[in-house]
Design a protein around this nucleic acid. Structure first.
Lengths: 342, 342
DNA sequence: TTGTATGCGTTATCAA
DNA sequence: TTGATAACGCATACAA
């Protein structure tokens, strides 16, 4: 409860002097005074108000991160990347779950603005032709004009810096790998309807199939980002034989769901059918899922570092895009295509 | 960038009037003035400084949550519970990963204090005989004296309110279930050395075994909270036959690791051996793991609600304990003990 | 090396 | 119904 004036008084110095020693200012202070102030501050249990500090210095050490749902490992890994570099730099990360709702994103952006956050990280993807996107873009612009850095971790048209992996290429690459294993008829389990991330990954899949002259063997199934969606999609596949040679899901969680459904139906994976995903979550290692590794942790870390290292004046700067590389991780759920049983 | 004075000036009113309009105060304001202020604020893109507001009102709408690692689903579910009620009440949640380090917890508590957080939630467990605990308790006390509510989600002796499940009873109950299925020789995969959570769960296991006169059949294996630890523990079990009738792990993640190791070794679960965990994470449903459901989301939500609903004056109040109920969830990794093969 | 004074953006008290 | 004005806790430009 004691403030700087209390400390100053008790130490018999002026507030400025107290401030200078407590902030570790380079301003010259006699060793004696310094020691006394520090001792008094400690004794009084002085806690410098980060609020007042941010107010007067016109810059906070707050970092906002907007995720769809922190329970989703895709996002929690990103959040961890953000917080690791943020906390190491003396920043505090503010977490916002937006449940993929653009309107919620807008309100959160405003809140982050009210807190004069140093930066704002959009971890989740947007929607195709989202009518709310202009409003979000406006909120972002207003934040930027205030010196708040905005970074998106997916390709997104809201006028901010983008640090992301190439989702389309990632999908292309797993598909290509499956084709290289001899698979011809491949099913793609899609993500949530209308999301850009869904579209990009589907596009990558389709482009690869077409380039391999396998467009006829391509099949897209409605799905979703979660286990249940992948499970359901696979069930539909099972219900309508013949099974494709392989299935690639929009992400690992759906892939694991599909895998689970197939094995429950006593279908041999990868013997009868190969399964692959995208993201390379922790769980994927455990189940041996072939996937594409995306640098999620690094994306969060890089975004945070960018925010910390770039002066506020540059917040409204050019919305450059940094594309991070991904990597195919072949594991045990995929195998060379088995010749058809006679 | 425009402040309340800018808005007031542009609207031709005093700051007080502008403030009253913009805060939705009950103070009477003429409709005309109100409309004008609102219009001007909108036009100027006015964003009220939450910092200044907190400074003058001496109470912020910041909620701190300390987790071991947000990537761990146990904690992300808690964090989600916290943020859901926090954000709905207009609070912002500040996330801190402390990696189970008491010293990091201490510094984070101080940081939360500097931000004048409304509350502080300790999601993770502490250590037995932790030499740093007094220092942490002191930091907590200082925070409380400032009106900051502290809540621990595990039994923890740091002088704050506890809202937690009965870990010991949870472990007791799974063990009891296993025994009821006819199992006699049961192994327990422990958590990280020295953690209170580990101790409590082990205690519950041992107490149950003793009560069933099965102390001789009880076996404790060093393990950990993660997949790898469970996997390794199961490997050790496999390496030293005969296998016990069942294994209960300190938590679900370790249980899944054990399950995975056993099945990799072509050991039939639950045919040859039953496996159970504690926590009831999402993954447990997917793999059909028998476990004990802990109200993690509710714990986070309740803690947040408590903080929001209790006036700051009561922060230093009695450190009551609320014990939440758990529930056994029998699934497919456990089965009645099979008579020994002749 | 230390101190004084000003302002950061709000809310709230007290007048008018 | 509206308006001055005093805090809130701190950093810093300017003096001394």
């Amino acid at each position: 409860m004691s403030s700087l004036v209390d400390v100053a008084q008790a130490a018999g110095v002026s507030v400025s002097t107290a401030s200078r020693v407590l902030t570790g200012s380079s301003h010259p202070i006699s060793a004696k005074t310094r020691a006394r102030v520090i001792a008094v501050a400690e004794e009084l249990g002085y806690s410098p108000s980060a609020l007042a500090r941010a107010l007067v210095s016109r810059s906070s050490r707050l970092m906002g991160v907007l995720v769809s749902d922190i329970v989703n490992p895709y996002f929690s890994v990103i959040a961890r990347g953000v917080d690791d570099v943020a906390s190491r730099a003396g920043y505090v990360t503010m977490l916002c779950n937006v449940d993929r709702r653009t309107t919620t994103e807008i309100t959160r952006v405003r809140t982050m603005r009210d807190y004069r956050a140093a930066g704002l990280i959009f971890a989740g993807s947007g929607y195709v032709d989202d009518p709310r996107e202009p409003e979000l873009a406006k909120a972002v612009r207003q934040a930027q004009e205030q010196g708040i850095h905005a970074v998106s971790l997916t390709a997104r048209d809201i006028g901010c810096r983008v640090i992301a992996a190439d989702a389309r290429a990632a999908a292309y690459d797993v598909t290509d790998y499956l084709i290289s294993l001899g698979h011809r008829r491949i099913a793609f389990i899609e993500g949530p309807e209308g999301m850009v991330a869904t579209q990009q990954r589907r596009d990558g899949f389709l482009a690869c199939m077409e380039n391999a002259d396998l467009a006829d063997g391509a099949q897209c199934l409605p799905g979703g980002f979660d286990f249940e969606a992948g499970h359901a999609a696979a069930m539909r596949l099972i219900a309508h034989p013949p099974l494709p040679d392989a299935v690639v899901a929009v992400n690992d969680e759906a892939a694991v769901g599909a895998l689970s459904a197939l094995r429950q139906a006593h279908i041999d994976v990868p013997g009868e059918i190969s399964v692959a995903g995208i993201d390379d979550l922790r769980v994927s290692r455990f189940v041996g899922l072939t996937t594409v590794s995306l640098p999620l942790y690094e994306m969060g870390a890089m975004a945070a570092r960018h925010i910390i290292d770039t002066p506020p004046e540059a917040a409204a700067g050019a919305a450059e895009t940094t594309v991070l590389s991904h990597r195919l991780i072949p594991r045990e759920t995929t195998a060379r295509r088995r010749p058809a049983r006679a």
